[in-house]
Design a binder for these strands. Sequence first.
DNA 1: ACATATCCTGACCGTTTGGTCAGGTTTCCT
DNA 2: AGGAAACCTGACCAAACGGTCAGGATATGT
Lengths: 204, 204
Amino acid sequence: MSPRPDVSAERKAQILDAALRVFARKGFHKARMDDIAQEAGLSKGLLYWYFRSKDALIEALLTVLFEPDLRDLERLLADTARPIPERLRELARNALSTLLPYRDLMPIVYEFYALATRPGPVQKAIQAYYRRYRQLLAQLLRQGIQRGELRADLDPELTALGILAQFEGLALLWIIGPEELDIEHQWEAIAEHTLRTLLPPTAP
Amino acid sequence: MSPRPDVSAERKAQILDAALRVFARKGFHKARMDDIAQEAGLSKGLLYWYFRSKDALIEALLTVLFEPDLRDLERLLADTARPIPERLRELARNALSTLLPYRDLMPIVYEFYALATRPGPVQKAIQAYYRRYRQLLAQLLRQGIQRGELRADLDPELTALGILAQFEGLALLWIIGPEELDIEHQWEAIAEHTLRTLLPPTAP
DNA sequence: ACATATCCTGACCGTTTGGTCAGGTTTCCT
DNA sequence: AGGAAACCTGACCAAACGGTCAGGATATGT
């Protein structure tokens, strides 16, 4: 059939990988297509063989950056054998340990947020991400309430929103001023404090 | 002395105001200096009479956007007559009612956050803003603890961080997907829930 | 009236950069 | 061997845009 072996999957990955590094280093605007081509060890023309435009390349990165988190949460939700508080703790730990090694990439995330501020494909994608994240987290909480492992008077949706907001807020504060807070310690402390407010009241 | 009346203050304000609107509409990158000049009803050359460069103009907006919040909090901290929980409630209400009418301007804030992701004057300024905000809020909490109006076992710095993070996170989620959440109701509910965790335990 | 500092204009320029394209090269199939 | 589809290159282009500047205009003090 094809007169040449299909390398498009590898090439796309190679380009996305290079783009990720270059965008992280210089930002969407200051990064030139030539930079990405050089970083990937390819010619600029080839970038346009695989991606319609710079914007298309940027949008393709959305999936790369945001999908993994959802996968993590889905896995956690399906792991019904373990108690909910334990799984919530792991969620917090996961979020933190995703943050730390990917610190260099975080600037890209915030450029996406800035884009998501206005209507467009990026906004749509990130809205969908948050919607799904809140759904999954609320479902996890609902599971905990039904099992009696969390307070019965909890509003799952509202609580999920609160937790997500706190994650996002802390990440933002840390990225902007890493030396202003001891992220590992304070993340853990805040998560633990929040978790305590979710547990059913116990007679002292 | 001066052969002409000094209009520099008004002109600067006029330019900053126009810049704010244009940047909010189009973003830092897509907004052209010509757009701003037109919006202000001035010539492009004049922009460069009052501001060294486009970047300088952008940086000047930092103060315009972030100072008012600090003023609010300072005022609240100085208002020592009123009980702390009441003042915290007002803080939450203020934050919300700043958000709503300024929704159109919020995109700028997130562009600043994206910039603050990398070292530079914007990062410095926003770091300073957050540092100050956390200090003031922690001080307010400390006041409440000393007065016995808040739990004695509270860590003021950590709690301040948690509250600020939740504010920021909620604002982010709302800006990106306004139709995904009922900000007024959920903000209020989350703030009230958080506040309850700060109050001293009362015998039921 | 005149000098002068400040304020203001808009045509112009140099550079930057996303995107294109004509022209390869490689591998497989017949 | 030869054709064809896929893959790849890098010089080139046109538009956009930040910034400049020569040349005014205007109000004030003398």
